[in-house]
Amino acid sequence: MNLKRTFGAILTILGIVGVIWGAYAFLAGGDSVGGVSVNQFSAAVPFVVGLIFLFTGISLVKATKDTA
């Protein structure tokens, strides 16, 4: 398996987790989420970082050719 494809899969999984966590923290409305106190505006940071990881991981997986 190609190293770029593996790294893309890891980035995609981290992106999905970041998007879900950011959305859940936003919907929690300022309550503690996973032991971390966040308000609605600071919940946008993991959401945006998760989106970046998600799209970068997907593009790495799609653009890397299988040479096996």
Rank of each mutant, 00 (worst) to 15 (best):
Ser37Tyr: 07
Leu54Pro: 07
Thr64Asn: 10
Gly22Met: 08
Thr64Gly: 06
Val45Pro: 01
Phe26Thr: 09
Tyr24Cys: 02
Thr56Pro: 03
Gly30Leu: 05
Thr12Lys: 05
Asn2Val: 07
Ala23Ser: 15
Phe7Ile: 09
Leu51Arg: 03
Asn2Ser: 15
Val49Pro: 12
Pro46Glu: 12
Tyr24Pro: 00
Gly22Gln: 10
Gly15Tyr: 08
Ser59Tyr: 15
Gly34Ile: 02
Val45Ala: 02
Val49Lys: 07
Gly29Gln: 05
Gly15Val: 11
Val61Ile: 14
Val36Asp: 01
Leu14His: 01
Ile10Arg: 01
Val45Lys: 03
Phe7Lys: 13
Leu14Gln: 05
Ser59Ile: 13
Thr6His: 00
Tyr24Asn: 01
Gly18Asp: 12
Ser37Leu: 08
Thr56Trp: 04
Phe53Thr: 02
Gln40Tyr: 02
Ser42Gln: 11
Leu11Met: 14
Phe41Gly: 04
Ala43Tyr: 07
Leu60Cys: 05
Gly30Ser: 09
Gly29Lys: 08
Phe47Thr: 15
Gly18Trp: 13
Phe26Ile: 11
Gly34Val: 01
Val49Ile: 14
Ala43Ile: 08
Phe41Pro: 00
Ala9Gly: 14
Phe41Glu: 12
Thr56Gln: 02
Ile10Phe: 06
Ile10His: 03
Asp31Pro: 02
Val38Tyr: 13
Thr64Met: 01
Met1Gln: 00
Gly35Met: 11
Thr67Arg: 14
Ala23Arg: 15
Gly50Gln: 10
Ile13Val: 13
Thr64Trp: 04
Thr64Asp: 10
Val19Glu: 05
Leu51His: 03
Lys65Gln: 11
Pro46Leu: 14
Asn2Gln: 15
Gly34Trp: 03
Lys65Ala: 11
Leu54Arg: 06
Asp31Thr: 12
Phe47Glu: 10
Asn2Ala: 15
Ile13Asn: 03
Ser32Val: 12
Gly29Val: 00
Arg5Pro: 00
Gly29Ala: 07
Ile10Leu: 11
Phe41Lys: 02
Ile20Tyr: 08
Gly35Cys: 09
Phe7Gln: 13
Asn39Thr: 15
Leu51Ile: 09
Ile20Trp: 07
Gly18Leu: 12
Ser59Pro: 00
Thr67His: 14
Gly22Glu: 06
Ser59Val: 12
Val48Leu: 13
Ala28Pro: 11
Gly18Gln: 13
Val48Tyr: 04
Ile58Phe: 13
Met1Ile: 04
Leu11Thr: 05
Ile13Asp: 03
Leu3Asn: 10
Ile16Ala: 04
Thr64Pro: 10
Lys62Val: 13
Pro46Gln: 11
Val45Trp: 10
Gly34Lys: 00
Gly50Leu: 09
Lys4Pro: 03
Ala9Val: 15
Ala63Lys: 12
Tyr24Gln: 04
Gly35Thr: 13
Ser59Cys: 06
Ser37Val: 06
Ala44Tyr: 07
Leu3Arg: 07
Leu11Gln: 06
Ala28Ile: 13
Ala23Pro: 09
Asp66Gly: 04
Gly34Ser: 05
Ala28Tyr: 07
Gly29Glu: 08
Leu27Pro: 03
Thr6Glu: 01
